[in-house]
Design a protein around this nucleic acid. Structure first.
Lengths: 204, 204
DNA sequence: GTCTATATACAGATAGAC
DNA sequence: GTCTATCTGTATATAGAC
């Protein structure tokens, strides 16, 4: 009964703390609140984590792990370039407009000056991965001989920047809700069209 | 001597509070710290502002006013489209990569859930203004007869999104310093080239 | 290992002298 | 209007019982 593995308590704490931090931010959440949310006693928090900072770092670390899985690997096995770009775009858009992803971004942007390592953790954990994936795909296009994209890094950056658009910033600022599936589709269609014209055809 | 206009105290407070909030964020700055930074006594703070929230709102409001001036009006009077786009791009890039602008964004993104009106204030104060300006310019291009840009709003959004790029997000997260003047130039050149190909030529 | 109860510091906000 | 001194709540963190 009471002999559950000790790690389950730690996991319980992290889950409760994650909910609270994502919802309210770092400073507005006290250790008392986290203890209630878990629920465990406050002393147990300090048994598993040296202090509030350490708990926060652990939470963000786990959040990055979970986001990393989501972006996983997108198969770009089709011969149809436009179709492959669509698949990549959908995965990216679905990820970044999630309430969870937006909450993580808000949290880390708010605290990155006090926790410098967290900015790196989040950036390398999601956007960097996506960029690298797209760069690899664009490389294969160049290698295939049908394209001659001059600056792969810039080309990959441009694709995701177009997909984020102003809307992502609006969502971060809370002045707009995340896009509906229909809005996402229209966005992706227009971006892919622009991209093929401005980037891929330019080097065709 | 002591008969300075009362407003100068209010201004002094706002200046001190602005420095502190931009540097450390809302929650890490206490009213004591602001009082020391101004410097005035804590009681004087409460003489001029009902509470910490009100002071914070006033600070962000003033910040938006100052940013608004910066973006002012960019003259797009040349007949050379590429040259006009360059001018708009430079003004935009110079603005958003300022340490001050980045600090404002961090601050408001962090607190927008607790201060919903501030997100709107900042968004309408800068990106919205820039977008509207560019939309107006693109309209004149369409009206001139040489272009037929189908979706003006999307086209304007795309331009600024390309200029922000991944780098702006990196700066927000503190994983990269703002770009040097040389980096800005290269960025602008490449974006304008891509843009003319993908957006303007598409409708030419 | 987990709990209740507590120590200590500092936050936002105010009273009252001048 | 501005100050010093203070009230009250709540924060992080810990001591000691079980």
């Amino acid at each position: 009964m009471t002999s559950e593995p000790t790690n389950s308590k730690r996991q319980t704490i992290i889950e409760g703390a994650t909910r609270m931090f994502l919802k309210h931010g770092y400073h507005k959440v006290s250790m008392d609140k986290i203890a209630q949310a878990a629920p465990v006693s406050k002393a147990t928090l300090y048994q598993h984590f040296e202090n509030k900072n350490a708990l926060f770092s652990a939470v963000v670390f786990e959040l990055c792990r979970s986001l990393l899985q989501t972006m996983a690997e997108i198969a770009t096995d089709s011969k149809d370039v436009e179709k492959n770009l669509h698949k990549i775009a959908e995965a990216f858009v679905d990820l970044i407009f999630t309430e969870k992803a937006l909450a993580i971004y808000r949290l880390v942007i708010a605290e990155c000056l006090d926790f410098p390592e967290l900015g790196r953790l989040v950036y390398d954990g999601v956007p960097k991965i996506a960029l690298t994936q797209l760069e690899n795909y664009l490389q294969t296009l160049n290698a295939g001989g049908h394209f001659a994209i001059p600056d792969i890094a810039f080309a990959a950056d441009a694709f995701f920047s177009l997909l984020k658009g102003d809307l992502h910033f609006q969502c971060l600022l809370g002045v707009s809700p995340p896009p509906s599936p229909e809005q996402k589709c229209r966005l992706i269609d227009r971006v892919v069209a622009l991209y093929i014209l401005g980037v891929l055809n330019a080097a065709d």
